[in-house]
Design a protein around this nucleic acid. Structure first.
Lengths: 133, 133
DNA sequence: CGGCATCCGTACGGATACTG
DNA sequence: CAGTATCCGTACGGATGCCG
């Protein structure tokens, strides 16, 4: 039995990992949410309604267009956003929330609200912690 | 004026970035939440109450102890969890939720619930999207 | 038991250039 | 306008080994 290469080991582990994750699909969705830009996009679309690609880009302001596109594709795939192409010249593309996406955006919004009202406590706790160090 | 090194440029940009973020502290908290393990730890402590370090490690099962410790330190710093050291031999360390952490865990839990009940839709959307490709 | 320090790979994300 | 393709650095996270 030859020693497994690192790549082979990783592949095996990935399979086990996937099997494990299958039991617990919801974790996957947590992962999605945790993807840095998802929350921003969702709340942008929630607050401003459907937006064009460049409007989104300006609203998020900090995401490279690579990340923007990538994240939008993912959200589209997961049935969170709709992507509508109007065949004008030049083309204009509009992104909006699906009902599913809207309901998730609702949750995100409540997290944002929590964050805004509890941020002071966090800052205070952080300052105290750092002082003791 | 010499050309700035990449490091110097990054430092400048970081300052601008921080200034920008100062306006919008809540984003920072979203970042924290999005840190892969935070949600897991929070909900583990919420469901099972205070836990020892190794109990947490077994519950999360998938986090290296490096990540576990790192995340716990972060949460402790932000005033979300308490870290209690009992001076037994060997020492035993217990982590619990602060009121602040508990209220955040509440939110996380509602997100988890959402995820569990809407996962089927996501899977369906994903399957359809992949078929069209 | 509950960590911390170190090394190291990879994959995430940014910058740039080009296309329909 | 709304992307795609490519290159490339870095920083995130895993594995390992040591300590109080």
């Amino acid at each position: 039995m030859p020693t497994l290469t690192a790549a082979q080991r990783r592949e095996l582990e990935k399979i086990e990992f996937d099997a494990f994750m299958a039991e617990c699909k919801s974790r996957e969705l947590l992962e999605t949410l945790s993807s840095k830009w998802v929350a921003l996009i969702l709340s942008a679309l929630r607050e401003k309604g459907a937006l064009r690609y460049n409007e989104l880009a300006r609203t998020i302001a900090g995401a490279s267009q690579k990340m923007l596109t990538q994240t939008l594709r993912g959200l589209e795939r997961d049935g969170m956003v709709t992507r509508t192409v109007e065949p004008t010249v030049p083309v204009s593309v509009t992104y909006g929330l699906t009902p599913l996406g809207a309901s998730l955006a609702e949750l995100v919004s409540s997290v944002k609200t929590w964050a805004e009202s509890n941020m002071v406590d966090v800052i205070a706790a952080r300052a105290e912690y750092d002082d003791r160090a």
